[in-house]
Simulated assay, not measured.
Amino acid sequence: MNQPSSAPVHTPHQPLSDYYEGEAERAAFLHEIFNTTAPDYDRVEAMLAFGTGPSYRHRALQRAGLCAGMQVLDVGFGTGLVAAQAIRLTGDASRVVGVDPSPGMMQASPLAATVQLLEGKAEALPVGDASQDFVSMGYALRHVSDVQAAFAEFFRVLRPGGRVCVLEITPAEGRMANAMLKFYMRSIVPFASRMRGVKTNTPKIWRYYWDSIEACAPPARILDTLRSVGFTEVKRHTELGIFSEYTATKPA
Rank of each mutant, 00 (worst) to 15 (best):
S17Y: 13
F243I: 15
S131E: 04
V115K: 03
D129H: 13
S131L: 03
T37K: 04
I205Q: 05
R221P: 05
A84I: 00
C67E: 14
S212V: 11
V97H: 06
T232S: 13
V127T: 11
A248S: 09
D211K: 11
F29T: 06
D74V: 08
A64K: 04
N2F: 12
F134H: 01
E168K: 06
K121E: 11
K235Q: 15
R175W: 11
Q85Y: 02
T170Y: 09
R43E: 09
F154A: 12
L167S: 05
M70I: 00
P110H: 11
A220V: 15
Y208I: 09
N201P: 00
A192S: 09
A248R: 06
L226T: 05
P110L: 08
L240N: 13
K235E: 15
G78N: 06
D211W: 05
L61F: 12
V229F: 06
A83P: 04
S109K: 05
G230T: 11
S6M: 07
E233K: 13
G91F: 05
V72R: 02
P126L: 05
P219L: 11
Q107R: 14
P12L: 08
Q62N: 09
L118P: 02
C67G: 09
V72E: 10
G98Y: 02
R186M: 12
G65W: 03
P190E: 04
S187D: 12
H31C: 07
M70W: 00
R88W: 05
R59I: 02
W210K: 07
N201T: 03
L66T: 02
A113L: 06
F183Q: 08
E239T: 15
R159S: 08
F231R: 10
A217Q: 08
P103C: 07
L181E: 09
M195K: 12
L125Y: 10
D40R: 08
G91N: 09
A150P: 01
A192F: 05
H10Y: 09
V157E: 08
G22A: 13
A177I: 01
E239P: 00
A177D: 13
R196D: 01
R196H: 12
G128V: 01
S187R: 10
Y209F: 15
S55Q: 13
R142G: 04
K199V: 00
E119Q: 14
F151C: 03
A49L: 10
N2Y: 04
P54A: 13
S131I: 03
V166H: 06
E32W: 07
E45N: 15
H10K: 12
F243S: 10
F154C: 12
C216N: 14
L141I: 15
F151N: 02
K199P: 00
S212Y: 05
T249A: 10
V127H: 05
Q71K: 12
A252K: 11
R159G: 01
P8G: 04
K199S: 15
P12W: 07
V164A: 14
P171M: 08
S6K: 11
L125E: 06
A177H: 14
G80W: 04
L61P: 01
V82I: 15
V99I: 13
W210M: 13
L223W: 04
L223T: 08
A248Q: 10
M180P: 00
D100L: 06
K204G: 01
Q107H: 11
Y19P: 02
G69H: 07
H58E: 11
P190S: 08
A130E: 14
F134L: 03
Q3R: 10
